[in-house]
């Protein structure tokens, strides 16, 4: 979308043009649902967050200044809504801008097993996919949000920082922690499979 059409879209949204609202819904509902599903882990919560995100976005469209993409702004609302729900469930406080932990132990690889050589059918079967979904759930909420936006949804580091309202360097640290934790989880999973195969 070029600058002229972005300005047009923003003006139309602020005039509450229903056809443009519907277009924004069409273009973004898939990605917001995917994000919510990954953040919350079940379809009912994901649907609630999906609806709440668009209701909030359309009710507060005057606050959107168009400095970021509409999709980034929607991601930001969806992440905040997801974290609020998780906070309610867990009864504690999750802050995306909380100070980063200083322990670097989680950034050091512990298991060195070369599982990349496994056949594709083992790397991409249903059992592996289920294991990956469970592994993603074990990430801290803040690290999971950074990982989903950057690595699954494919946002740039800058867009991820905007969506999470944190600095780019904080995104990089959270992303590294998430990636390394998932690598350890998958290494343990595939190493066990490799051992079983040799028995």
């Amino acid at each position: 979308m070029n600058e002229n059409s972005k300005t047009f879209e923003l003006e139309a949204l602020q005039k509450r043009d229903r056809a443009v609202f519907a277009q924004v819904l069409d273009q973004n509902s898939d990605r917001i649902y995917r994000l919510a599903l990954k953040m919350l882990g079940n379809v009912q919560d994901a649907e609630d967050i999906l609806q709440e995100t668009f209701i909030k976005a359309f009710n507060n469209i005057d606050q959107f200044e168009g400095r970021s993409k509409v999709s980034t702004w929607l991601y930001r609302i969806a992440v905040n809504e997801s974290l609020m729900l998780l906070r309610k469930r867990k009864g504690n406080t999750i802050q995306l801008d909380a100070p980063l932990e200083t322990d670097e132990g989680d950034l050091i690889p512990r298991q060195i097993v070369d599982w990349c050589c496994l056949p594709e059918k083992e790397l991409m079967n249903t059992e592996t996919r289920d294991h990956i979904r469970e592994a993603v759930k074990t990430l801290s909420d803040a690290n999971r949000a950074a990982f989903i936006l950057r690595d699954v949804e494919g946002l740039s580091t800058q867009e991820t920082a905007e969506a999470l309202d944190i600095s780019e360097s904080a995104v990089k640290v959270r992303l590294m922690r998430a990636r390394m934790q998932l690598r350890e989880e998958l290494t343990a999973f595939f190493a066990e499979k490799m051992i079983k195969e040799t028995l």
Partner: peptide, 11 residues
């Protein structure tokens, strides 16, 4: 290599 593959599989 395993880190690259991890990201690919998660996607």
């Amino acid at each position: 290599n395993t880190l690259k593959k991890t990201i690919e599989l998660c996607k």
